[in-house]
Amino acid sequence: MHFTINGTKYDADPDIRTSLLDLLREHLGLTGSKKGCDHGQCGACTVLVNGRRINSCLTLAVMHQDDEITTIEGIGTPDNLAPLQSAFVRHDGFQCGYCTPGQICSATGMLDEAKKGWPSHVSESLDGDIALSDEEIRERMSGNLCRCSAYPNIVDAIREIAGEDA
């Protein structure tokens, strides 16, 4: 099987049952994406596929051979953090950090969705402009759990970047 991850081509021959998450972590050594629940409930495994955020634990690697996959390793590096990553550090948007790669990937996808004008469950109007209020950010990020409960600071970090984008 052939994969394109963070712009790099990889060859791998995993068992057909291998999830995209297990391919990344166990076969390609890209351990930034985390396994929390392995059932799509916690969001720790969130990656971007063709720019869209998905749960990498709930999809088969074999189904993504022709896709552009972006993981946290492709979003920023320790020497060159992405703006969202810097904002998480500035706002103390984590304690243990296990959910953070998923939070960052999810927020990256989420900001793009908002830019496209996608409404959410809490949007008053379905076709109005999207202003990313705290309520909007919380609703749009509800697929990412943080058991340290750093939610207020996560929202602060995302709001800062959303404001810069606007």
Partner: peptide, 12 residues
């Protein structure tokens, strides 16, 4: 649709 699941799941 917006009342169901999460952003990640709705994308898939």
């Amino acid at each position: 649709l917006l009342a169901g699941a999460s952003g990640q799941l709705r994308n898939k």
